[in-house]
Simulated scan of single mutants.
Amino acid sequence: MSLNDILDALFPAGHTVAVAGQVITGEAQTAHGPVAVLGTTDAAAIDHAMALALADFVLDTVEQHPGRPLVFLVDTCGQALSRSQELLCLNGSLAHLASCVDLARRQGHASLSLVTANAVSGGFLSFGLMADRAYALADAQVRVMDLRAMARVTKIAHERLVELAATSPIFAPGAESYVRMGGIEAIWPEPSAALLDAALVAARQAAPATDRRMASGLERGGRLLAAGIMQAVGA
């Protein structure tokens, strides 16, 4: 599905969204008023310039439109991998982006993200997962690291990781695994204005409440230890 088709389905009341390179910014109308729309498209590898452009848009929204909800559209193959990006401190740029999203939350901006195609690695962790709630389309591909790469990093045999992925969503790629772990709230069969409106209401009611993703992971049987550890540390 093309980006325009997704935007038209989510915002039938109208939208003015621009794409510069692979960065999406703009605004749209919903049943609950205007929202800020930002994100990436075409499996973008998020680099230094993209991260700063997204962060600037978040800060501009906080300054110019207090309280306006943020809708993140996520389609990324992860962070850009090159020596030049590392020398530009891409990790710092991604951390800055995440900090800006957190600032918006603390200033009363509800937020949600929708994975429209790909959500991979640091490009997802520092952006889409920073929203109050994350959702994914049914055909979206969500993962932090594929099993062969994980095998190289962890020195665990690929065959063993395949076995573990069969029983534990922590090792298994896919949107369904992230639902079980609580990282993704729900999978949408298709982009829908009705689903978006309901998600915006839920995000507004939740913000700035405590993040429930670890509790959801425990309830869904996909992340069994994180909630208890958090409670123990907090105590």
Rank of each mutant, 00 (worst) to 15 (best):
M214I: 14
G39P: 01
V17N: 04
D132L: 02
L94P: 03
L161A: 01
G217Y: 10
E63S: 11
L59Q: 15
M50V: 04
S192R: 02
A166P: 00
M145G: 12
D60A: 10
S2P: 03
V23C: 00
S121F: 15
A131I: 00
E185I: 10
T25Q: 04
T116M: 13
M181I: 00
A51W: 07
F11N: 03
A199D: 00
R204F: 06
G182H: 11
F127M: 12
L59R: 15
L103T: 13
V115C: 14
L224G: 06
M50R: 03
A110L: 07
D102Q: 12
R133E: 15
Q29N: 05
L224V: 10
A194C: 06
F127E: 12
S192Q: 03
H32D: 11
N4H: 10
A206P: 03
A227V: 04
A175G: 04
G39K: 00
A131R: 01
E176S: 07
R220T: 01
Q231M: 08
L94D: 03
L97M: 11
V179Q: 07
A80Y: 15
S177M: 01
R213S: 05
L81K: 12
V23P: 00
A49Y: 09
V201E: 10
G122K: 13
A199I: 02
T167C: 13
I6P: 05
R143E: 15
V19W: 04
A186E: 12
R148S: 05
A175E: 12
T167D: 13
V58W: 02
I170E: 09
F72G: 00
A186T: 05
L94F: 04
Q205L: 14
V35D: 14
I187M: 09
D102L: 11
S82V: 03
E176G: 10
L225H: 10
A98D: 11
G108S: 08
P34E: 12
D8E: 08
L87P: 00
D102S: 09
T167S: 13
Q141M: 08
G108N: 11
V233P: 05
S82T: 06
P189V: 08
M130Q: 09
D197R: 01
Q107D: 14
A198D: 14
R160P: 01
A227C: 04
L88W: 04
L70F: 10
A206Y: 01
P34N: 11
V23N: 05
H96C: 07
I229N: 13
M130H: 15
A45G: 06
L87H: 13
L112A: 00
E176H: 10
L164D: 04
D56P: 07
L218E: 11
V23E: 04
R152M: 06
W188M: 01
A166Y: 06
Q22K: 05
